[in-house]
Amino acid sequence: MKLLRAILVRLATMSVTLIGAAVVVFFVIRVVPGNPIAMMLPPGASEDDIARLTAHYGLDKTLFEQFGIWLSGVFRGDFGTSISLRQPVMPLVLGRLPATLELAIFALVIAVVIGGVLALTGVRHRETRTETAIDVANGIGLSIPDFLWALILIVLFGVLMPVFHISGRISPSLDLPFVTQFYVFESFARLRFDLWWDLLKHMFMPALALAIPLAAIISQLLKQSLKETMHLDYVTLSRTKGYSENHVILSEALPNAMLPTLTLIGVQFTFLIGGTVIIERLFSYEGLGNMAIDAVINRDLPLIQGIVIVFALLFTIINLVVDMTYALLNPRLRHA
């Protein structure tokens, strides 16, 4: 009963968040100067044509009428028609979402692995030069933003040492047998490792660019909380039982020290997804973020709205997953 109640409360807050996001995005993009109709018609179009097209897309109605029409459509699952692509918004968005999700998850995995290894190494060799070196690396990782990392990586591994692909999601010459848009997962499931490897070679640099700042944050925070945990009595007690330093760090300190890091990863992961917008653009990666930039350039209002709603939904789901994982890993919260 308690659990059911918690879930219902959670769903209610999620809906409020989404509706808030819908309201904000709808009105904000209409306040920003720029006219989608002007972008569609050639220069010198007649007043008549402009008026006809404006009426066709319902842009002659008042803002509140437009909002009502759009929102009632949303509740029926109809997010409108993209003005620039002249197709229904939702299939477009859902077609691009898997590419972005795969990129973001790959980046998250890289960040957790790099950050975790650095934190554990730093704690194992705390108060030595190794820890200082890790601190310096964290500082550099944090102080350079992801899009700059992208440019640095392009120069290093795309130009000077061309080992990774710098553009697109997959080599255009390959035949694609895919039925879903989750190419990485599907190629793996179909045991098509040639395609899988090609996808990873395309994904590696954008994912790494997104991952480096997050890895630095994870490394810094996890190392700090591990160091604090290492002084606690239960860690000392387990040393007296004959355990090695590695065992003490991994099985006594880590399960407790990673809890605050986990919450942070949740928050930072949403920032990382925000970062995909620019990164996808830099690498011409055909994901949702790249589509978002096109939509903004074309003043494609329905498409922008659809993308923002999907991003907002994604963020609320991530928060939910983080909270659930936290409760699962922390026995003190399990009965609460």
Binding site: L237, T240, K241, G242
Partner: peptide, 24 residues
């Protein structure tokens, strides 16, 4: 040394509230 201490000696710590691992 660790193994010898673990096998032959033991500690009763001062503060029982902090000497047990909260997540196990």
């Amino acid at each position: 040394r660790r193994r010898l201490i673990g096998a032959t000696a033991a500690l009763i710590p001062q503060d029982p509230l902090t000497a047990l691992n909260p997540s196990r």
